[in-house]
Write a protein that binds this DNA or RNA. Structure first.
Length: 799
RNA sequence: GGGUCCGUGGUCUAGCGGUUAUGACGCCACCCUUACAAGGUGGAGGCCGUGAGUCCGAAUCUCACCGGGCCCACCA
């Protein structure tokens, strides 16, 4: 019994576990900041800690792992850290659900304690999934050194977030201002746009009467928000609208409140909608706010932070918005000012948690300047290499759409605190020194006396940061900004930001903005923007549709390697969505088995010694040239983060060129049972088989880390393929025939035999070949078992 | 409404000025040929979304239309 170097009969998913566990144990991909190698840094998107990863994340992290492994083989010191996002809303929501509490019904200490408890109990399922997927992060343990796993709510990370605030504040880039924002009366907090959802709610469209001051005529205006009449700042109609053209520049008098407002033609009004004439209120919705700003109108705020009407609402003061609306309608009816009412469904912004209707009220918030920097941002957007290039447009469009500075403060608890105190006497703002995480709402200020007025009493800031204010420094954090200045200087800018296209306007934009404010430079060289994994029918996955695919099921059924190969083969995720189907993932598995069998077969031949004389035949040169071309193409494409094109080509090489054609032709020479070949020729076949196999393994190593690791190690005394250099493009060899021509010739012979009812190993009486095949005629004769060989203008096959 | 991407055999996909239009999955037929039946060989199946234009020549370029995905905005 021959003992093959590759013992197992086939590759199975059970073989993965010992491999990835050994990698983890050995800390193989630990980052070395003092390495002499050039650094390649990947700013991975920290997934949310308490939710298991979904199939989309599984795919994108696998793709990032391709990049990391490839760059490592290219001789870079690869920074590929794992981060976990733990700040903000999702944790708060989980705590509220788990303990059945509400943010503003318990003390801040208690609430934070509950959040921490949720975090402590939270599963590390996502980390486990990454490990099983064969992802080669620098580290699996949390820590503060470069490359260690980091948590966005760690004191170190939060201290850096606060430090950046202090810098930006001192540079004059952050200011406080009273502006209208989303506000949830139920939760009593300002909300980011991303925390707002929409619902189609029934509402009433009320036709109410306004008087024209100059002419005394009456106009009818439709509104769903009659309680906001008191905030009406202007009445508009469409410039094309004949019915109202004569009113342009005249004055309308609001019903009940009797306030005089200007009437103006404005394209915002649509002719067909309602009565075609609109009252513009401050704070009906965000477009009103924009309109007021545009028209330079002073907004009237009628709703207070408690969700009740204030004194600006006159007789409605003290009523909740809903009650006020009812009361206003009654009042209008009584005065004969309501002439119609119809039911409509109104797409209403609501709070994603309490489902309360969002109100737009004015609040004092911190803002980071961005409007003034729009041209600069566009310039930076053009500097970053986008993969694919058309994704740049998403960022450019968003920069164009930005209309106000970035509100960065939130009235929440589980987030990074704004590091500021105020002198109770003179209001002076006190900043702490940078570098230490602080909680002003529970800690005393860093000074005893106000430097301005000498006051000794202070109030700590209670607000926290928008979570994007944390997330937007991730590349600085992973590169050791302010923590390891020497390394930061060496490694900046960050090589690559991989992320989803849906968060270009948030994560990518805010990162580029904030890092520019801090460093004056563009923080990324490359940005790789991915599309999504959808279900097998092309529909976006969502819990409500019940079409979610769990990566655990994939891992359990097939293991990581088929899934990884599928991720590469399926398509180009920077250009299109992938449809996820188990059938296709299973299909990828066949290629693994093929690779395994090829390797097992080749390993059954003793490898010629390095010193052995090798006499390459033309067929050997041909296949070596084929793999050489694969290497050249692969390297070029991998450099552009394209793994799809190469994976497809490599797979095709493996099945067709190598297995079906070369291997079949070299087989009898490798066996050399009949001693038809010299020892040098036999060795040449075996040498070439090994050469092709190893090069194939090397180019596949980033995609299939575990199978290639196992085979390569078995063939080379346990050598780790991932620390080998990526193969280099060799000199091109001129071959008189193409791979396609050879494949066609073989096909023709196989077909002829089959049509004659012969088996593939059966004899041919004569084979006439075209002259270009003369160099490989002997190999063809062996392969097809031809008795006689001749040459002519055309191929002729005699049975 | 704005942006963006995409319509190629039943399904998915390559091709991006000249090919008999790739390849995969599925289907049918034959074959256990000493790496591999999770294999091999062969086969059926396509007016390349519609219409017009440019060109000697279009799946490929242009325009219009139709259909779809995603993102953004808006809905008094």
């Amino acid at each position: 019994m021959i003992c093959l170097p590759i013992a197992e009969k086939t590759w199975s998913k059970e073989m993965e576990q010992p491999i990835f566990e050994a990698w983890k144990k050995k800390n193989l991909y630990k980052f070395n900041p003092s390495s002499k190698k050039k650094v390649f840094s990947i700013d991975t998107p920290p997934p949310y800690v308490n939710t298991p990863i979904h199939i989309g994340q599984a795919t994108t992290y696998v793709l990032m792992d391709f990049f990391a492994r490839y760059k490592r083989m290219q001789g870079f010191e690869v920074l590929f850290p794992l981060g976990l996002d733990r700040n903000g809303l999702p944790i708060e929501m989980a705590a509220e659900k788990r303990f059945k509490i509400k943010l503003n019904e318990v003390s801040r200490e208690d609430f934070i304690a509950k959040c921490r408890q949720v975090l402590e109990e939270s599963s590390t399922e996502s980390i486990d999934s990454f490990l099983k997927l064969g992802i080669g992060f620098n580290a699996w343990e949390k820590g503060v050194e470069i490359g260690a796993m980091y948590l966005t709510d760690s004191p170190e990370y939060r201290a850096l977030t606060q430090g950046t605030f202090i810098d930006l504040y001192e540079k004059g880039l952050i200011y406080q201002s009273d502006r209208i924002t989303n506000y949830c009366p139920g939760c009593r907090t300002t909300l980011a746009d991303s925390e707002v959802e929409y619902a189609d709610l029934p509402s009433k469209f009320n036709d109410i009467i306004f008087k024209i001051k100059e002419t005394g005529e009456q106009i009818i205006i439709g509104t769903t928000r009659p309680e906001l009449v008191c905030t009406c700042g202007m009445v508009i109609f469409n410039p094309e609208d004949e019915r109202y053209r004569h009113l342009d520049g005249k004055t309308a008098i609001t019903p009940i409140f009797g306030k005089e407002v200007r009437i103006k033609a404005h394209p915002l009004a649509e002719i067909e909608k309602g009565t075609g004439i609109v009252m513009m209120c401050s704070a009906g919705d965000l477009s009103d706010i924009r309109f007021f700003r545009e028209m330079n109108l002073q907004p009237v705020i009628a709703i207070g932070a408690d969700g009740k009407m204030n004194k600006n609402a006159g007789f409605l003061e003290g009523l909740h918005v809903r009650e006020a609306r009812k009361k206003m309608i009654e009042e209008l009816q009584e005065k004969g000012l309501l002439v119609g009412q119809k039911d409509v469904t109104h797409r209403t912004p609501i709070c994603e948690r309490s489902k309360d209707e969002i109100e737009f009220i004015s609040m004092q918030e911190f803002y980071l300047k961005q409007i003034d920097y729009k041209p600069k941002m566009k310039e930076l957007a053009k500097k970053i290499n986008f993969f694919s290039p058309q994704s740049r447009q998403i960022l450019l469009d968003w920069i164009d759409a930005v209309s106000i500075d970035w509100p960065i403060s939130r009235r929440r608890y589980y987030a990074t605190e704004i590091p500021m105190w105020y002198c109770k006497k003179c209001g002076k703002e006190i900043l702490p020194p940078k570098g230490k995480y602080c909680q002003p709402w529970r800690e005393p200020p860093p000074i005893k006396k106000c430097p301005k007025c000498g006051g000794t009493e202070f109030k700590g800031e209670e607000r926290v940061f928008d979570t994007w204010f944390d997330s937007s420094i991730s590349p600085l954090y992973i590169l050791g900004y302010e923590r390891n200045p020497a390394f930061f200087k060496k490694a900046f800018p960050c090589s690559l930001r991989p992320q989803g296209k849906e968060i270009v306007r948030t994560w990518l934009y805010y990162t580029v903005l904030k890092c520019y404010h801090l460093t004056g430079k563009c923080v990324f060289s490359d940005a790789w923007i991915n599309y999504h994994i959808v279900d097998d029918k092309g529909i976006k996955m969502s819990k409500s549709k019940g079409n979610m695919i769990d990566p655990h099921d994939v891992l359990e059924q097939f293991g990581a390697e088929p899934f990884r190969l599928w991720s590469a083969i399926e398509g180009d995720l920077t250009k299109t969505d992938f449809r996820c189907s188990f059938e296709r993932i299973q299909g990828a598995q066949k290629t693994l088995v093929k690779l395994w069998n090829i390797a097992r077969f080749i390993s059954s031949f003793p490898r010629p010694k390095k010193t052995a004389k090798i006499k390459l035949r033309e067929i050997d040169k041909w296949v070596l040239q084929e793999i050489n071309e694969i290497i050249g193409f692969t390297q070029k494409q991998y450099n552009e983060y394209d793994f799809h094109g190469p994976a497809t080509k490599i797979k095709n090489f493996l099945w067709e060129t190598f297995a079906s054609h070369y291997l079949e032709m070299a087989k009898s020479r490798a066996y050399n049972d009949k001693k038809a070949f010299s020892k040098e020729e036999q060795d040449a076949a075996i040498f070439t088989l090994y050469e092709c196999l190893e090069k194939t393994l090397l180019v596949l190593a980033p995609i299939l880390p575990m199978v290639t690791f196992k085979i390569y190690g078995d063939l080379n005394n346990g050598k780790d393929i991932h620390f080998e250099a990526f193969p280099k493009l060799g000199k091109a060899e001129k071959i008189p025939f193409s791979g396609q021509e050879l494949a066609d010739l073989n096909s023709l012979i196989w077909k002829t035999k089959k049509e004659a009812g012969k088996g593939l190993r059966d004899q041919l009486s004569e084979l006439a070949l075209e002259k270009k095949f003369s160099g490989i005629a002997k190999d063809l004769q062996e392969m097809h078992n031809a008795q006689k060989l001749s040459f002519g203008e055309k191929t002729e096959i005699k049975i």
